[in-house]
């Protein structure tokens, strides 16, 4: 009995000791903000304590070509802040030495609500997503061992890693966790649509936007579900197979024929600025996207059930739908200086 008590005492002393250490080292810890009415994020910062230093380090790495084999491109080369972190004007993006990939660069926003990453959902956790562009031969073409060695031989990074993790030795875990602290914080929730939903001030939809919203709810929202404007699923939206790229999408990951031609349902937030559209960037204008859904859908066994019947939209509906989609533009997000490159270093 006595022994038990001593154990409890020791345990409580230990807990107090650990807690006090926590208070002193995490003075700059940031709390991740979940917008009102949004679901619980899928990624939990509990296992990657969010700090200003960690965020800043992630941002520094995001903008630094040091991650690529010939120091020519950075994450930001294909993910630009003012286009919701996609690659403006590029159907497919180019990596080192102008090599071209097979898919359109995805937007980076609201990533902590994603259940998987990439157009085919092959990546299961935000932290390990970055391994793909870093090691892909047509993107950054680096070996992880080399990246870690380059970072360890940089006095700047040893200092920044020390600030973020209280340890200047760089390893892949710290690299990926800091990148996730930056990318996970790219949250877009301040569009006109959001203001209206939150009843802020006297912001209201125009007549056209309001009609567009009801067209959207009737025809689009089963996949592009509010408030994230995606249901995180994979669907075949009736695009023809590109005979050069021969990209069957999710089937490559699951090896299942039932996933043939399926791709991630992308969010529609900031869609006004994230052209070109679809997984291979084949169309440039929103009106062409709508044209596809109303008259270009190709029937096939894996086609999304919602698209099996024709989607009929009048000219006015299309115009209004586009007007509504533009209310998803979030200028606070697109022009947020916190997401821009650090220039003081």
């Amino acid at each position: 009995m006595k022994y038990k008590r001593i154990h409890i005492l020791v345990l409580s002393a230990f807990v107090i000791f650990i807690c006090s250490a926590f208070i002193f080292t995490n003075e700059k810890e940031i709390k991740f903000f979940v917008p009102k009415g949004w679901p619980k994020p899928n990624y939990d910062f509990k296992n990657n304590p969010l700090t200003l230093n960690g965020f800043d380090l992630g941002k520094e790495l995001f903008y630094d070509p040091i991650l690529s084999s010939d120091s020519s491109i950075s994450c930001a080369s294909c993910h630009l802040s003012f286009t919701a972190f996609t690659h403006a004007d590029h159907k497919l993006s180019h990596g080192i030495q102008g090599l071209i990939g097979t898919r359109n660069s995805l937007v980076l926003m609201n990533l902590v609500w994603n259940k998987s990453f990439m157009w085919d959902g092959g990546v299961n956790n935000l932290e390990v997503q970055a391994i793909n562009p870093i090691t892909n031969p047509v993107e950054m073409n680096s070996k992880l061992v080399d990246v870690i060695a380059r970072l360890n031989s940089s006095s700047k990074y040893r200092r920044l890693f020390y600030k973020a993790f209280k340890d200047s030795v760089v390893n892949s875990q710290k690299l990926f966790k800091s990148l996730a602290q930056f990318t996970g914080n790219l949250v877009s929730y301040n569009s006109k649509y959001d203001s209206i939903m939150r009843h802020e001030g006297n912001v209201e939809f125009t007549v056209s936007e309001l009609n567009g919203y009801s067209v959207f709810k009737k025809n689009c929202s089963s996949c592009h579900t509010e408030p994230l404007f995606t249901n995180n699923s994979f669907e075949n939206n009736g695009l023809s197979l590109d005979t050069v790229l021969k990209d069957f999408g999710r089937m490559k990951v699951t090896q299942s024929k039932s996933d043939s031609l399926k791709f991630k349902v992308p969010s529609l937030r900031n869609i006004e600025f994230s052209a070109p559209y679809f997984h291979d960037g084949r169309v440039n204008k929103l009106k062409d996207v709508l044209e596809h859904y109303t008259s270009g859908v190709i029937q096939s066994p894996t086609l999304a059930s919602q698209l099996k019947q024709n989607v009929n939209l009048t000219k006015q509906d299309k115009k209004d739908l586009i007007a509504f989609l533009k209310t998803l533009t979030d200028k606070y997000f697109l022009y947020n200086l916190q997401y821009r490159q650090n220039i003081y270093q």
């Binding site: 299961n124 956790n125 932290e127 390990v128 391994i131 992880l144 875990q173």
Partner: peptide, 24 residues
């Protein structure tokens, strides 16, 4: 451990026993 994000030690993806495109 296959869904736990970036790990270290023997589970560090740097060891090469890791698929990045189809995580695991």
């Amino acid at each position: 451990k296959n869904v736990s994000g970036a790990l270290t030690g023997d589970l560090d993806p740097i060891k090469g026993m890791y698929w990045a495109w189809n995580t695991g």
